[in-house]
Nucleic acid binder design. Structure first.
Lengths: 161, 161
RNA sequence: GGACACCUCCUAGU
DNA sequence: ACTAGGAGGTGTCC
């Protein structure tokens, strides 16, 4: 049975060049316990990193748990809160008959995690003095700068076309 | 008819904190004659002081005259020489559809002065041994340190919003 | 047309 | 380490 204490999660993504070397970071707190996660890819996009940060954070908490997740990405927060992502999935990852919804690999992972957890997404303005958001920002930039980053295989495959 | 001898002008701005107490200074020379101007505000920005220094200097020379103005502010020199300021004005003080151009009050004053004078702006690297620039620097810092500085009303009004 | 984010480059002021 | 300013851009959505 999952611990009923809710999680507080901050996430951020960075990308040096967009597309370029990218990093993600998450701070996951439950009561007095706090964990940090970060990582990067050698070539990706800012929005893929914002999504990945949320995925990594939610993968770190058990199914059935409750969380509030803070992000400065409107792409992420609105796609969840306004039901965009569910709509794209329902239409076979299309936004309209002729326009594809992007990053379906990451959205699939995220929606599955959300099915198993009770998560509230909250948008926070970036670079506006929120210390947790700013720490995530620094962590994600640092991750993007690490040497020998692995490939974001899905992104790089999409570029070859 | 204006004196045809060209003016040599050095300007600088300083700001203790940005935003913070700010000072401007100008040295205006014509032949053997030299004048100095300086002043300050209790709370303003570095770029507003760089602009103000140029405005005060050009207000001190007659319409129709010719001048070369040296400044270490890229904001000032490029906005004049590359036509940025004219462009912002033409677009209703916007840099793009969504981004406002800042300090329109000062740019309006400066552009009007430039319409009536033949002024060449030259950028000089700050703190690089130019004695006139360094004297301006000292004057502007001293001005910023004076007690009982008046308010930069436009700046403080903009902060309240 | 709008929003958010991610940058790249440059300068100045602390 | 910070803030105030400028030019150019992409990633994504409505």
């Amino acid at each position: 049975m999952p611990d009923p204490t809710p999680y507080i999660i901050y996430t951020d993504g960075a990308c040096l060049g967009n597309p370029g070397p990218g990093g993600y970071a998450a701070i996951v707190r439950q009561g007095a316990q706090e964990r940090e996660f970060s990582g990067g890819f050698r070539r990706t996009t800012n929005n893929r990193m914002e999504l990945t940060a949320a995925i990594v954070a939610l993968e770190s908490i058990p199914a059935g748990s409750q969380a509030t997740l803070y992000s400065d990405s409107n792409y992420l927060v609105q796609a969840v809160n306004l039901g965009w992502a569910r709509g794209w999935k329902a239409k076979g990852w299309r936004r309209s008959t002729k326009e594809k919804a992007l990053n379906p690999d990451l959205w699939e992972r995220l929606l599955k995690l959300l099915d198993q957890r009770k998560v509230t997404f909250v948008w926070v303005r970036g670079h506006a003095g929120n210390s947790q958001n700013e720490r995530c920002d620094r962590l994600s930039v640092a991750a993007a700068q690490r040497p020998n980053l692995p490939p974001d295989a899905v992104f790089e495959a999409g570029e070859k076309i």
